[in-house]
Write a protein that binds this DNA or RNA. Structure first.
Lengths: 103, 103
DNA sequence: TGTTCATATGAAACATTATTCATATAATAA
DNA sequence: TTATTATATGAATAATGTTTCATATGAACA
């Protein structure tokens, strides 16, 4: 599946696991295991989610030995997050972005 | 429910119906019936979706006689859409935003 | 007040997406 | 070429979100 629609793109931000991955990668590239750790999740789950993020070009990968290093497409992602952060602040809405629970 | 998380915000763009509402409102404010027409949907469905868009301050409303006029929070929405449009173009991905089918 | 037009809402049915579990593949080094 | 570590994948199950349908509410006006 090589094409996708707008809503597909946004689905990556709409899902907690994917969003957490994105946020974790804001601090720089990481391997799958590292992401799994930081997100306190499980490898298979992370891999499934990474795939979709990749399909939408929200992330990039490169091989490094046995590992795969995922990095953020910051050109697109950073400005979007910035706008949304401002939006949330401006509208005085409680932001639960730090919700780190397992789901 | 007055607070929401990042992913909730994005959920409004991740759903086809909601996204279509947003896109239709890019051309200016509309009443519920007008939105229902343009989106070729059904009133109750539109109302349900409008509610969530409103909760996230993606839309605003005002009363006008019997009608309720919904308008876009363009300050937030327009720049986000702009970034995503560029992203899709840049990554040579087929954009199916014009998918106007009934679902 | 009763009627009409416009919109909202609750709950059940339905649809879609995510996670889990078991297992496969891929790269590297011994 | 086998063992090991790292990651990916398919399919069933679980979780979540969306629509539908029936009905309620609300504004305006006769």
């Amino acid at each position: 599946m090589k094409h996708y629609s707008y809503n597909n793109f946004f689905m990556n931000f709409a899902n907690k696991t994917k969003l957490r991955i994105i946020l974790v990668l804001e601090n720089g590239p990481l391997s799958v295991n590292e992401i799994t750790d930081r997100v306190k999740s499980e490898q298979s789950r992370i891999s499934h989610n990474l795939r979709k993020l990749l399909q939408c070009h929200i992330l990039n990968v490169k091989q490094k030995g046995k590992q795969r290093i995922y990095s953020l497409n910051s050109e697109t992602v950073v400005p979007i997050l910035k706008i949304v952060k401002r939006h949330i602040k401006k509208n005085c809405l409680v932001c639960k972005i730090k919700n780190k629970s397992g789901d």
